[in-house]
Computed example of a mutant assay.
Amino acid sequence: MMLIVTGYMHTDPTEVPQFLAELKVLAIVTRQRPGNISYDAALDNPETGRLLITERWADQEALSAHLDAEETKAFVARWQGRMRGDVRKFDASNERGLLD
């Protein structure tokens, strides 16, 4: 069953450029991982340092492998205490086109 991970991450507005640069590096690696369907972030509000996060994974095994990967752990360790988030995971069992 496909999983959708989405929500907001927050960091100090002065750190947004560095956060985005490091996240871009992580995204390049993550998009190559087995079971990754998409992995994206967008700057939602530069004044508050809020970013929209959206990911799609083929299954929990793929997501767990990503969360356990060295690059992911290193990113989280570097930003621990400098980022906070409200990111949730959803099961997607009835995927269809937008107009279907």
Rank of each mutant, 00 (worst) to 15 (best):
E47P: 02
D86F: 00
G97W: 00
L52W: 07
A58W: 02
E47N: 12
W79Q: 08
R84L: 05
S93V: 02
W57L: 02
H66C: 07
L51W: 07
G7P: 02
A62F: 08
T54Y: 12
L51C: 03
V16F: 07
I53S: 04
V76W: 13
T48Y: 01
R33N: 14
L67V: 04
P34E: 13
E15D: 14
I53G: 08
A21H: 13
R31F: 03
D91P: 04
E95Q: 00
Q18Y: 09
K89F: 05
M83W: 04
P46Q: 11
E47A: 15
E71H: 01
E22C: 04
V16Y: 07
V29T: 13
G49Y: 04
L3W: 04
G49K: 08
R96E: 03
N36A: 07
V76N: 08
I53L: 11
D100P: 00
L52T: 12
V25E: 15
R88D: 11
D44W: 09
A77Q: 13
R96N: 01
V16W: 05
F90H: 11
E70F: 08
V16Q: 05
V25K: 15
Y39C: 11
H66P: 13
L20P: 01
E70W: 06
N36L: 04
Q60A: 15
E55I: 10
R33T: 06
D40H: 10
A58M: 09
P34S: 12
I37Q: 12
R84I: 02
Q18T: 14
T11H: 05
P34Q: 14
G35A: 08
T14V: 12
F90Y: 15
L99C: 03
R33G: 11
K73W: 01
Q80W: 07
I37N: 07
E47S: 14
L99F: 05
M9T: 12
A21L: 07
F90C: 06
Y39F: 15
D12A: 15
V5Q: 12
W79L: 02
Q32N: 14
Q18H: 12
V76L: 13
E47W: 02
H10G: 03
H10V: 08
V16K: 01
V5C: 05
D12L: 09
Q18N: 12
R88Q: 13
F75H: 03
T11W: 07
T14H: 12
D68Y: 04
S38H: 10
R82K: 14
L51N: 02
K24D: 14
E47D: 15
F90P: 01
D100C: 00
V5D: 01
L51Q: 06
L43M: 09
I4V: 15
R31I: 11
L63S: 03
G35D: 10
A77N: 03
L20V: 13
D91Y: 05
Y8H: 14
L3V: 04
R78Q: 13
K24W: 05
T54Q: 14
A65T: 14
Q18P: 01
P34G: 12
E61F: 03
D91V: 09
D59H: 11
G81K: 09
R50S: 07
L98R: 03
T54A: 11
D100W: 00
P17I: 01
L3K: 11
T72W: 06
E15T: 10
M9R: 07
D100E: 02
Q18M: 06
E55F: 08
M9Q: 11
I4F: 08
S64E: 05
T14S: 13
A62Y: 09
Q18F: 05
M9S: 12
T54M: 06
N94H: 10
T6S: 15
T30M: 10
